[in-house]
Each structure stands twice: as structure tokens, then as C-alpha cells.
Write a protein that binds this DNA or RNA. Structure first.
Lengths: 195, 195
DNA sequence: GGTGCCATGTAACGCGTTACATGATTAT
DNA sequence: ATAATCATGTAACGCGTTACATGGCACC
């Protein structure tokens, strides 16, 4: 998950050297996922260790290039053509905040957390939207396809987040006031002093 | 980002011992983010090292409980009341696949990748939707609020992903066929042999 | 008497991330 | 000249994750 696969794919259309991989990686992801060059070299080491890439002929300049091994090419094709299962959903900071606020009853007001996050997310969304129109209206029609795709994605994600914040507020408002909502089952078993 | 903050918040309403934290963490996140118990203890060590928690009085049973220090309580409040900035968007496997497929022109057909992922995501979405109705119609009206919120969230995320896959396919179809779309700028500078 | 849950840990690995060191080449 | 970019690497840290070891207690 991550850089390994990225490099693997980038090496899919021919040998490349470290720095080139960094540049290509960022270009491919629309500069939205910056990559410290050092990581390329360490990741290449690990890929070599695992037999997925091998040092290829050194460049006409002094540049050390790497190429996929057969195994590496296999992994690359495999990863590319297999859809992600995502058995366990990724932990998201915003979701964590809201869920934890909701569970730690009383100490923090979930609606405050939600409101604050909504403001940030809306600002974020506006910024991305602005960037997208700006990019779309750029003179060069082919302007940075990857960057546009990233913006599309981020906009959709933020919109989804806003909807979720609304849903969450609603659900919390619906259940909280009716009862003081102590999850009695667990609470009773291990009373934790100072309530 | 992650477990640290989770434990911090959970300790916000009183001292708890390790195992309890694990149980509470999973309960708070609707069992969607499972947590190996061992991680609780190592994370507690780190939190203690950083002066955010301290070992509190041992339980009536032999259980070692931890409590927030003043600093820890500060961090907790801080984290809770501050919205996430998310300067750099998180790397997502699906997005990576599509973007990399789009950039590595020719080796892999992006539309194939997209189609395959769409199938998986749709199945995923249906499963979550099914689970939600099932949970909502459960006899006990208060049934697992956290779990419901997670399902809401995952459903919205998957829907957003589907829309993005559509958008991406469209954008790729719009630009790709017109030109063979070699990013000439970089391509020219470092010709990488065997094309 | 064994199976399973409660409870606390430790050891080791993997990967991402940062920071640092070192040079060559190019541009101003 | 000197600043920026190209190019390759190393060292160290942090956190998440897995696997393992141990022991008490309850229930059947």
C-alpha cells in the first residue's frame, strides 16, 4: 500500500533512476502526494531486497537505473488489475474526532466538534473548487490531467464529508436528548470512579 | 493521528486500564477500527514517555489504570476542538491505481482498472447498505450508534468513489483519444529507451 | 480438565517520514 | 560567484502491526 506499488508501476514502462521516479510519481499524482526523494532510494532498496526490481545498466550519465524483474512485473500487473478489498476501513481523523466526541459523553459537545469541522471542510471545499475552475480554464487545454482528477476526487470527498457531518449531527440529536445515553451494558461492569 | 489521540480522548472521562481502553476504543468506533490489545500498552508507554498520561492508582483488582496529566488533558482538548487541516491529502489505494494507470500510458488500460474497481466498490456499497438497514431495523432502537455512523460514512465514501470513477473515466476518455498524450515536456528530456 | 475470555505485557518488523551529507551541473 | 536544481544516498525516529508469552478466572 503506497510508495512500493507506485514505484513498481512507474517502472512498468521501462527502467528509471531514482530521481526520475520521484518526479514521475509526483507528476502522476498531480503533485498532491509529495514524495521525499530519500524515500525513493530506501524503497528501491526494499524492492531490490524482495526481488521485485534489479539494478539495470547505468545511464549514459552516471545515473543508476532500476528495472522490474519478472516477479516484480507480476506483482505490478497483479496490483493493477485487482480491485482493492479494503476489509478494514481506513482510520480518518475527522471521523475519529466525531465518533470519539460522541462516545465520551459530556466531556466534549459533539455538535461543537462537528460545527468546527464543518467550517474547516467547507473552506477546504471552496478552495479546491476554486482551484479546479482555475485549472480548467487555463489556456493549455490539456492542463495537468492528474491534478484535475485529484481535485475532482478531493471535492467529492469533502462533499461526502459535509453530508456525513450533517447526518451525524442529526443522528446524535435524535438519540442523545431522549435519554442521557450511557452505554449501560459496559458501564455497569467496570464502574470507573469519578463520574 | 490515530491511536494516540484515541486513547487520550478515552482517558478524558476518567482513568482507565489498558484492556478497558481497547474495548472502549472499538465500541466508540463501531467495531470498524479493530485494535490489537498490545498496541494499547505500547501506545500508553509512549504517552507516558511524553508526559501526557501517568500511571494512576492500581485498581481494586490488580488492574493498572492510567490517567491524563494536565498536559495530556490540554492536548486532548486541543485535538478535539481544532479542526483538521489536512494540508496533504491522504494517499488512497484506489485513487493511486487509477492515477498511475492513467499516467503509465499504454501498459495498462485505465478504463479496465476503473471498471474492475467500480465492480468492487459497488459490491462494497451494497453490503454496507444492507448492513445499515439491518442495523436500523434491529429491535433495540438505540442499536449501536457508532456502528451506524460508521456505516453512514462508509456508504457516503463509496458513493463518492463511484462518482469519481465515473468522472475519471469521462475525463480520460475526453483527453486520451484526441492525442496519444505523451507528456512531451518530461518525456523528451530523459528518453527511457525501449518504448 | 479444558476452552475461552480477561488482563498485561514484550520483541521484532515494516514502512513512512525527516533530516542530514555529499557532489555535479545549470542558471543568474 | 552563488543560488537552484539534479542526483544519490544514509541515519534515525515514530508509529502501526503482528506474533508471542504469561497468568488469572469463569463456566461447562
Amino acid at each position: 500500500m503506497g510508495i512500493r506499488e507506485g514505484l513498481l508501476v512507474l517502472l512498468g514502462d521501462g527502467p528509471k533512476y531514482g530521481y526520475q521516479l520521484k518526479v514521475d510519481f509526483e507528476a502522476a499524482t498531480g503533485e498532491a502526494w509529495p514524495l521525499n526523494v530519500g524515500q525513493v532510494y530506501t524503497t528501491l532498496q526494499r524492492l531490490e531486497r524482495d526481488g521485485l526490481v534489479a539494478e539495470a545498466d547505468t545511464d549514459d550519465e552516471g545515473r543508476v537505473s532500476y528495472a522490474l524483474t519478472d516477479v516484480g512485473r507480476g506483482e505490478f500487473i497483479d496490483w493493477m488489475t485487482t480491485a482493492e478489498k479494503r476489509a478494514v476501513p481506513a482510520r480518518d481523523e475527522v471521523a475519529m474526532k466525531v465518533l470519539l466526541a460522541a462516545s465520551s459523553a459530556g466531556v466534549v459537545d459533539p455538535s461543537v466538534v462537528i460545527d468546527e469541522q464543518r467550517r474547516a471542510t467547507m473552506a477546504n471545499l471552496q478552495e479546491y473548487t476554486r482551484l479546479r475552475s482555475k485549472t480548467e480554464n487555463a489556456a493549455d487545454g490539456d492542463g495537468d490531467l492528474a491534478w484535475l482528477l485529484q481535485l475532482d476526487r478531493l471535492i467529492l470527498l469533502r462533499q461526502a464529508e459535509l453530508r456525513w457531518l450533517d447526518d451525524a449531527e442529526e443522528r446524535l440529536a435524535a438519540t442523545r436528548p431522549t435519554r442521557n445515553q450511557q452505554p449501560e451494558s459496559d458501564r455497569a461492569k467496570t464502574r470507573e470512579g469519578q463520574s
